[in-house]
């Protein structure tokens, strides 16, 4: 045998808790994070931490009470967010983050409910739930982190993979057209639609703040680098290289039709706040249109 086996040190709970106490609370954002969970599992160069950080900063500056806010997430790399935030969070089954959040919102209408999930969870397996929640105009904030593939399972092609992009399951290049997520959300009836990349962290914070102040179905798409699952087969380089591409290729165009907002593999990436409109939410319609009439008659 080349290596000598060493007996591992026995696990001591006291030492473990002491270590957590020493390493937690040394960053201002740590008060929103569960003790002992940082460092997170996301790869070096992944943009997911930026999105989580932007969400925390947006929530902090809007002074949303932790007791009055719930985060629901699905399965995938982004689904891990529910495990890191030190508040009411739910890690639901694959694709069912929005139905769970809908129920939560109807049971506690005064609560801010945020759905934090990935493109594979929200648009592949949970696509139907998303379009119907947008159609009903449920009062939810949906933050969709788009990394163009199924990152956690090893980089398979999904509904957002660019055409001709190589993944584990499309070694000769993807032949399917991808979704334009912002257009889909807009066409389904979302009242606020924005797209940013993880490079536009400050704009993302402003978008999160707007979402907390607004009623209705709000949708933010965030493009993030995925150096491990998507960058390697497509030779996009490290996370830093992909962030530089976002810096150089992205173009901010607010208030355009999301149909024109393209995001190519090597072409321009159109980002901005595309839609900001007012519409009565499902809860208002239901209380005024159904409950009032039912109690009167």
């Amino acid at each position: 045998m080349r290596y000598k086996l060493v007996d591992p040190e026995p696990f001591r709970l006291g030492e473990f808790k002491q270590k957590i106490d020493e390493t937690h609370g040394i960053h201002p954002d740590d008060r929103y994070l569960k003790p002992g969970r940082i460092p997170h599992i996301w790869c070096p160069g992944c943009g997911l931490g930026i999105v989580l950080s932007a969400f925390i900063k947006g929530m902090d500056s809007m002074e949303v009470a932790i007791d009055n806010c719930a985060v629901v997430s699905g399965i995938g790399c982004t689904g891990r967010v529910a495990g890191y935030l030190n508040m009411d969070t739910y890690h639901t089954t694959h694709g069912r983050a929005i139905p769970f959040a809908t129920g939560l919102k109807l049971a506690k209408p005064e609560m801010e409910v945020v759905v934090f999930s990935g493109d594979g969870d929200l648009f592949a397996i949970g696509g139907n739930h998303l379009i119907h929640a947008a159609r009903r105009n449920m009062d939810l904030t949906v933050i969709c982190v788009n990394n163009f593939n199924y990152g956690m399972t090893g980089g398979q092609a999904g509904p957002t993979t660019h055409i001709a992009a190589k993944t584990v399951t499309t070694p000769y290049g993807n032949c399917e057209y991808p979704f334009n997520l912002t257009h889909l959300a807009y066409a389904s009836g979302a009242v606020y639609v924005a797209r940013w990349t993880s490079f536009h962290a400050r704009y993302l914070i402003e978008s999160v703040k707007k979402c907390f102040a607004k009623k209705g179905f709000k949708f933010i798409e965030v493009l993030t680098p995925c150096p491990t699952g998507y960058g390697r087969p497509n030779r996009l380089g490290s996370g830093l290289d992909q962030m530089k591409v976002y810096r150089d290729n992205s173009e901010i165009r607010n208030d355009i039709n999301p149909m024109e907002a393209e995001s190519g593999l090597n072409g321009p990436i159109i980002v901005g706040e595309f839609v900001d409109r007012e519409k009565p939410t499902f809860f208002e319609r239901y209380t005024e249109g159904v409950l009032a009439k039912a109690s009167a008659g």
């Binding site: 954002d29 940082i38 996301w42 992944c46 931490g49 932007a54 962290a201």
Partner: peptide
């Protein structure tokens, strides 16, 4: 504060 915003690891402020 850009480094604090752009750090994915909560490691700088």
């Amino acid at each position: 504060g850009l480094c604090e915003v752009i750090c994915p690891e909560f490691a700088i402020y």
